[in-house]
Design a binder for these strands. Structure first.
Lengths: 150, 150
DNA sequence: AAATTTTAGTTGCAAATGCAACAAAATGGC
DNA sequence: GCCATTTTGTTGCATTTGCAACTAAAATTT
């Protein structure tokens, strides 16, 4: 069997750990940078979609976003056409911190890809996208209460 | 820039989420399967090494392992040649549940790799191993209190 | 149009996570 | 042999995480 998932788990935990340590200096606590960059890049996105985008429980997203709001990195705006929805936007303070997060992201990516040539980099990205699609489908399936048979 | 880390984060969170839901049926709670499989495959490993292997804080590992012990999945044995070390081993109960975890792992891997041919599967594995090595080095560096410059 | 289902969001737990700060054994100079 | 450093492990917080269970609005069915 080709076993890639453990490797992916190790990489993800490492980077998460690194980011959390590095962003503590700003007052961005655990995991919040994840949400902030997505809101920056998708202004007006709602909580539910954001949770689905990063594959996190919606209640977890709700609280992380609440904290970002409390710390004035983002704000919510009631949608006019849909009373349920609260659209999310980055504040000036949030906009100001974005480049820092982005710079860290670029650095980590380059570090991670060290020793891979251009073709290999393109290749791994392409393959990971496929894996992501596969896995996302099972995530939706299981999260909705369905049972995988194996 | 080639951006692979977000993809890796999404994949890892999805699978973690799926595993946690599926293993709740046995009395394995959040994340514990991670430790159990490694102890099974590396009998006599100590806590510190195990934490380093899966890239998790040593205090987190300590408590997860304590719980595995309490629930009788594993046991600790004082090392004879080193009084600090407590070697870890899987109990009969732990051995009995291992195939279930392994089977889920195989299934998830196959699911994740759907649509990739044999050569692509070998390739992504090879490239991920390189990425893992790169990232692991930075993790050690940052975890020890050093600061990355960028 | 009324009833049902789905979507979006919230709160109450219980548990996991990780930084700080600590203890004790082992190791490495000198 | 003695002292400083590293290794291994623990406990005390504070925070994050996510399943259950719940509202309320929107969309869909009948």
């Amino acid at each position: 069997m080709v076993e890639i998932l453990r490797s992916i788990g190790v990489i993800a935990r490492s980077l998460d750990s690194i980011s959390n340590i590095e962003f503590k200096d700003y007052d961005l606590t655990k995991g919040q940078y994840l949400y902030l960059v997505r809101i920056y890049e998708n202004p007006g996105i709602i909580q539910e979609k954001l949770a689905g985008m990063i594959k996190v429980d919606k209640t977890t997203a709700a609280r992380a976003i609440k904290k970002l709001e409390k710390n004035n990195f983002i704000f919510r705006k009631q949608s006019t056409d849909n009373k349920k929805e609260k659209k999310l936007y980055v504040t000036d303070k949030g906009k100001k911190i974005y480049p820092t997060i982005y710079r860290e992201d670029i650095y980590s990516n380059q570090m991670a890809l060290k020793g891979l040539d251009a073709a290999e980099q393109k290749q791994i990205l392409k393959l990971l996208k496929k894996v992501e699609d596969n896995v996302a489908a099972d995530w939706e399936y299981v999260k909705k209460g369905n049972k995988r048979e194996y």
